[in-house]
């Protein structure tokens, strides 16, 4: 068991190092911009004196590593910001203040996070169930009509971008058929039923393309596993086909699926940005697009880091699940 504990520790340290490295890269890339940050922040009509003042306020004259160090300090210990007239305290995981609204980025993210988490995790349930189910079914029904149909459907799914599926769903379901109202976010704690109904279309648009990818992977992984020697063993010992598929083939086939789920988490987050923008859901993605358009760097950096955090965590969790499923990974 100590081997497994050691593995967990190594994986955790690895995740932390990755996060730190991402923060350095993101910080450096965004703050060594070709454009003048003070000029952008202040706006096109600022006088040189005003720009100078903004630059002072943002400590833009300090070397980059000093500013990054302050940023890290703020993350760990919090920081005080003077906004000209008053001093604002930004507490522990401080990601700075928005250039535009002087709002704390951490606060801003916290208000938007529930929407995005609802969207991504709800969709994940759908894509896993739908994708893995379809994949298993089409591997099992290989060569029959079911498989051909499913293969065709998943191919269409893979080839349709999130925003195209979303647009079509919205127009057909909400516009033409009027089966559902145009989605408006309702908090889970406020009204779970409305929460689910309003998120149904966004979930589907985000999940369908991912489900298609999972169906393809699960199918090929199942087909590969079904040719392995130990499957032959159980067939040769009179174990029924259904038990062979359910107990032995599926278990082996799911390992790469877990890995893909982590790998695709990043792309799903990208899809969530599109979905939120399309359906007007007030989540991180929508806010990020807004911040990008007005070049609100602290917000952009903060959000990229938070999203990076979730992706890294998802990868670490997948690795651990993978190791639990297959202890040989730990030994390797």
């Amino acid at each position: 068991m100590s081997g497994f504990g050691g593995f967990l520790l190594r994986r955790l340290i690895g995740a932390l190092v990755t996060l730190l490295a991402i923060s350095v890269i993101v910080y450096v890339v965004f703050y060594v911009t070709p454009g003048n940050v003070a000029q952008i922040t202040c706006g096109p009509r600022c006088s040189p004196a005003q720009i100078q003042q903004v630059a002072e306020q943002l400590h833009l004259h300090d070397p980059l590593y000093v500013r990054y160090w302050h940023f890290l300090e703020g993350l760990v210990a919090g920081q005080d910001y003077s906004t000209g007239t008053s001093v604002q305290h930004c507490s522990a995981p401080c990601l700075g203040l928005s250039y535009q609204s002087d709002q704390q980025v951490t606060q801003l993210i916290l208000t938007k996070l529930p929407v995005s988490l609802s969207l991504v995790f709800g969709a994940m349930v759908i894509w896993l169930v739908l994708g893995v189910g379809t994949g298993v079914l089409s591997a099992w029904r290989r060569g029959r009509l079911t498989e051909r149909l499913l293969t065709g459907v998943t191919l269409v799914g893979v080839a349709t971008p999130v925003f195209v599926i979303g647009l079509v769903l919205m127009i057909v379901v909400c516009g033409q058929l009027q089966l559902l109202p145009f989605p408006q976010y309702v908090g889970l704690t406020d009204d779970p039923e409305q929460w689910a109904w309003n998120l149904l279309l966004p979930w589907l648009s985000l999940a369908l393309i991912e489900a298609a990818a999972f169906a393809r992977l699960t199918r090929s992984s199942m087909l590969e596993t079904l040719t392995e020697d130990h499957i032959r063993t159980f067939r040769a010992y009179g174990v029924g086909e259904r038990a062979v598929v359910a107990r032995h083939a599926l278990r082996g086939a799911l390992a790469p699926v877990i890995a893909l789920n982590a790998n695709n988490f990043g792309s799903a987050v990208g899809g969530a940005v599109l979905t939120e923008t399309l359906f007007g859901l007030p989540g991180i993605g929508q806010e990020l697009v807004h911040a990008v358009n007005v070049v609100d760097l602290p917000v952009v950096v903060g959000m990229v880091l938070v999203i990076g955090f979730f992706v890294v965590v998802a990868n670490a969790v997948a690795d651990v699940l993978y190791a639990v499923a297959d202890r040989r990974v730990v030994l390797a």
């Binding site: 990755t18 991402i22 890269i25 790998n263 990043g266 792309s267 987050v269 990208g270 899809g271 940005v273 599109l274 990020l288 959000m303 990229v304 999203i307 990076g308 992706v311 890294v312 990868n315």
Partner: peptide, 8 residues
Amino acid sequence: VAMPLMIM
């Protein structure tokens, strides 16, 4: 690989 392509 860990950095989400779309977001970056």
